[in-house]
């Protein structure tokens, strides 16, 4: 088990999940990381931190996911999370036009404040509520194209589109990594750099409890086709 892994390059990428309150950011993340859905997800306070590991195209990818709070009062904290982010998941609720318009503010803010490359992915969540839909797929897709973001409609409830979205984002992150490996923009920390972050304290770089025993993502290397 060790030898092939040792040959693999490891990268760590920071993913920030943004969007208005109640659009289902936490549900999407918990569905992806924890593989479940809870009806009683309570509003996030500040931000929650999740990690997710996968192997993809010969890389060991560790996603550090910051699930941010959508409430207005936490707006001022957002820079802390997106500042060094490599990818942003912009989540809106397909039944709320306002949540979709809010995405534009987020994009504007990201453009203004982030000067490093950042992969963006637009997620229209709650796609199971098609009867109450207010944001058409075409409109969202067009918008996503205009900001050069990936676009998926997802349902945390029905588990639709989420794995694919994260997978495609990861692929894009790899592509970014290969394009600018040494850009020094904090894009993706190489293993050495990531050691540096933790070196204050000890050798224990990896969180001991959640290592590779975590279920390998089902989509692991199988979808490398595209």
């Amino acid at each position: 088990m060790t030898s092939p892994e040792e040959n693999m390059k490891s990268i760590e990428a920071k993913v920030v999940v943004l969007g208005s309150q109640g659009v289902g950011k936490t549900s999407v993340v918990i569905r992806y990381v924890g593989g479940m859905f809870s009806k009683a997800v309570s509003p996030t306070i500040g931000a929650s931190f999740f990690t997710y590991k996968m192997t993809l195209d010969g890389y060991r990818v560790k996603l550090q996911v910051w699930d941010t709070a959508g409430q207005e009062r936490f707006r001022s904290m957002a820079p802390m999370y997106y500042r060094k982010a490599n990818a942003a998941m912009l989540v809106y609720d397909i039944t709320s036009l306002e949540s979709f318009y809010d995405i534009k503010d987020w994009v504007k803010e990201l453009r203004k404040n982030v000067d490093t490359p950042i992969a963006m992915c637009l997620l229209g969540n709650k796609s199971d509520l098609d009867s109450g839909r207010k944001v058409s797929t075409a409109e969202a897709a067009e918008y996503a194209a205009s900001i050069e973001a990936l676009f998926f409609e997802t349902s945390a409830l029905k588990n639709l589109g989420i794995e694919d979205a994260f997978l495609q984002v990861s692929k894009q992150l790899l592509k970014m990594y290969e394009t600018y490996p040494n850009s020094g923009m904090g894009l993706l920390s190489s293993p050495q750099e990531s050691t540096d972050i933790f070196s204050h304290t000890t050798q224990n770089v990896k969180l001991p409890s959640r290592t590779d025993s975590e279920k390998p993502p089902s989509q692991g290397g199988s979808n490398c086709g595209c």
Partner: peptide, 9 residues
């Protein structure tokens, strides 16, 4: 929500 994951607030 603190029960779901480590939080930073």
């Amino acid at each position: 929500s603190f029960k779901d994951a480590e939080s930073w607030t």
